[in-house]
C-alpha cells in the first residue's frame, strides 16, 4: 500500500491551484505597462495562451490604449499581430506613432461574422501569432469556449472585445475585464474574473490621452476652443494666435 502523501506535497504541484492565491501562469505573462493592473493580474501581466475578454460599450474610452503597450512589445519580439473585425477603419499613422509595427500587423475585416470567428479561432490554433485582437457583438458561450481552447494551445495574447451586456453571461475566458470611464480621464477597470481570488476594487488607470488632462477640463465647461465658437471667423484667428496645445 502506498504511503499517504503529505498535503504540502500536493499543494506544491504545479497543476494544483489554491483558490486564495493568484494563479501563476505556465507561460510567463507579458507586463501590461500599467503597474496597478499588473499587480492584480495573475502572473503579473496579460496572460499568454489564454483568452482575455474585454467588455466595454462605446468606442473612445481608451480601450485600445490599454493594449497598445503590449502590442508595442510585439515589435521587439518580431511577432505578428492580427486584428479581426475591428469596429472602424484603422488610422495607420496613429498606430505607427504609438509604436505598433505596421509591417507585422494584419487586419481581417470579413463581411460575415462567422468568418471573423473562423479566422480568430484558426489564427489562435496555429500558434504563430504574437497577439490577436477580435471584436464581436454577438458570440455565444460555446464559441467563446472554442476560442479559449484554441488559445490554450499557443503562446498568443488573445483579446476579445465584447459589449457590456455580455457581463451577465458566463464565459470560458480566463480573464474578464470590464472597462468604464473613470474620473479625471482615467480608465476604470473592473476584473470580473481572474484565476485567483475575486478582485473587488476598481482600478483607475492613466491611459495615454491625446492631450494632457488638466483640472480645468473638468470644471470649466466652456473651454477656450468652445468660447471660440462664438464667431467662426474669430475662432480661427484666435486659435492661431494661441500657443499650440501640448499634446501627450
Amino acid at each position: 500500500m502506498k504511503a499517504a502523501v503529505a498535503l504540502a506535497e500536493i499543494l506544491a504541484r504545479p497543476d494544483v491551484w489554491c483558490a486564495d492565491r493568484l494563479a501563476s501562469a505556465a507561460i510567463p505573462a507579458l507586463a501590461s505597462g500599467f503597474a496597478r493592473l499588473d499587480a492584480e493580474l495573475p502572473g503579473g501581466g496579460w496572460p499568454r495562451g489564454a483568452l482575455t475578454e474585454i467588455l466595454a460599450d462605446g468606442t473612445g474610452l481608451g480601450e485600445c490604449s490599454l493594449l497598445l503597450p503590449v502590442l508595442g512589445r510585439m515589435r521587439e519580439e518580431g511577432r505578428w499581430s492580427l486584428l479581426v473585425a475591428p469596429p472602424y477603419s484603422l488610422n495607420g499613422t496613429a498606430w505607427a506613432a504609438r509604436g505598433i509595427d505596421l509591417a507585422r500587423l494584419a487586419v481581417v475585416s470579413p463581411s460575415r461574422p462567422r468568418d471573423a470567428l473562423w479566422a480568430a479561432e484558426h489564427a489562435l490554433a496555429s500558434g504563430a501569432l504574437g497577439a490577436l485582437l477580435c471584436w464581436t457583438t454577438s458570440i455565444d458561450a460555446a464559441q467563446v469556449r472554442r476560442l479559449q481552447v484554441a488559445a490554450a494551445g499557443s503562446d498568443t495574447l488573445a483579446f476579445l472585445f465584447r459589449p457590456l451586456r455580455a457581463r451577465s453571461e458566463s464565459s470560458a475566458a480566463a480573464l474578464r475585464l470590464l472597462l468604464t470611464a473613470g474620473a479625471h480621464a482615467t480608465l476604470a477597470v473592473d476584473l470580473l474574473k481572474r484565476r485567483g481570488p475575486p478582485c473587488t476594487r476598481t482600478l483607475h488607470l492613466e491611459v495615454p490621452r491625446p492631450l494632457q488632462w488638466r483640472a480645468n477640463h473638468e470644471s470649466c465647461q466652456i473651454h477656450a476652443a468652445d468660447a471660440a465658437l462664438a464667431g467662426p471667423a474669430s475662432a480661427i484667428s484666435r486659435a492661431r494666435s494661441q500657443r499650440p496645445l501640448a499634446f501627450a
Partner: peptide, 30 residues
Amino acid sequence: DAAGEQEAIAALLERLCARLGEKQIYRLAV
C-alpha cells in the same frame, strides 16, 4: 525557432488570404 515561426505565420496568412480573399485581409501602409 525563428525559421519555424516564420513559416508558421506565412502558412497562417496564406490560409486566411485564400479563404477570405484579398479584400478582407490586408495590411496598412502610411
